[in-house]
Design a protein around this nucleic acid. Sequence first.
DNA 1: AACCCGGGGAG
DNA 2: CTCCCAGGGTT
Length: 347
Amino acid sequence: MNFSEQIISWYNDNKRELPWRNTTDAYIIWLSEIILQQTRVEQGLPYFYRFLERFPDISSFANAREDEILNLWQGLGYYSRGRNMLKTAQLIQDQYNGVFPVKYDDLIKLKGIGEYTAAAISSFAANETRAVVDGNVSRVLARYLGIDEPINSTKGKKIFQNIADELLDLNDPATHNQAIMEFGAIICKPKNPACGTCVLRLDCVAFKTNAIKYLPVKLKKVKIRERFFNYLLITDGEKILMNKRGENDIWANMYEMPLVETNTLLEIDELVKLPQLQQLGDKMAIKGHTTIIKHVLTHQHLYIRFIELRDFPENLQKGWFYTDVNNLDKLALPRSIFIFIKKFFNF
DNA sequence: AACCCGGGGAG
DNA sequence: CTCCCAGGGTT
């Protein structure tokens, strides 16, 4: 058996039952693929069900409001995925008469769909012969063939895509693609791969040369920025002052309390002297504050605390608005904000 | 090519 | 702690 036959044979015996398999509905496949970008299957599963129930087809998705999509996406991270999905759904509604495209060359033009996702949808929905290359695939290939080119360099991506294309089963690209990803997730795992039960181990260069530990090679990641977020908690228990975030920074278009960001960690009494706080009114006083929570993102470490003010401010800044506390569950909140609010108001 | 964009789980 | 997950967009 060649590589593809071995992988597919293993897959038929060992695959998980996942709800987005056994369908050729491009909309459902698209939904699952976007949710699963940089996301583990277990984490994405409940979101997949939630979205499919609320938006059973492309037209219901296209008619949604961005706020509702972000609210449903809350907690999953990489929120631009949700915003891009709305744009794509609207474009498909308008320019494709609501029929989801299944050709790679059409898919690749859509917002939020790159090489991987275009290959996945076109092969799963229409058996187009496009090889997927995700983290699983590049890891399997790097080990099996003993390739030490970094999988995330421009050159490396080209190399692994070319190899994946050559190995692809042209008669059943869909199953081949599913199989190699599943194999990477279950057997050829990043750490402690199950080489003992691997059907490819006798042909695997990394296994034969004891190089599993060192493959795949990946380029170093960039340095992490530290930021200090002081959130102003202004509430009487029934209404609360909130802010809608802008387009550019993290958590774009999502909601939070009024934010005072500082470059360093300030003591509470230093914080009160800041112009952002002085501008709020004449006699602004602090009622209390929380300890600092460290919120870890891929490129940033956020040090977050919540400062409760005694009175409502006289002057509101742009983007600030009062809302009923009972309305908070309808707003898309960053995870750390959501957790704090839940605890504070006893939700 | 480098950087940005979340949150969670494994080891 | 570190690494990585069914990646993609922007500069």
